[in-house]
Amino acid sequence: MVPLNWYLTLGAVVFMIGVFGFLTRRNIIIMFMSVELMLNGVNISLISLSHFLQDLRGQILVFFIITVAAAEAAIGLAIIIALFRNKSTIHVDEMSEMKG
C-alpha cells in the first residue's frame, strides 16, 4: 500500500513546477500549458484523497475541473490568437501597453 502522503507530495511537486513555469516563461502558450500542469497536480491530489477516504466526491470535483479546464483552454487560446493578430508577438514581456 502506497501512503497517501506520497501522492499528495507528487501533486504538490507537479503544481509547483507549473507555478515556476507560469512565473518565468516568456512564451504565453507555455504559460498556458503551465496552468494545465497546475490543474493536473490538483487532480492527482483529489483522486488520491478520494481513493483513500473512500468517497466519490473528490472524483466529481475532478470531473468539473476537467470541464472548466477545457473551457479555459478554448477561451485562452482564442485570446492568444487575437493577441498575435494585433501585436504579432507572443512574448509576455514585450506587451507593456498597460504600464503607466
Binding site: F20, L23, T24, V92
Partner: peptide, 15 residues
C-alpha cells in the same frame, strides 16, 4: 530567443 524572463530566480524562489 531566450526562454525565461530576466527575473527567473525570483520565480524559482517563490515556487
Amino acid at each position: 530567443v531566450k526562454r525565461f524572463v530576466g527575473s527567473w530566480p525570483a520565480g524559482l524562489i517563490i515556487a
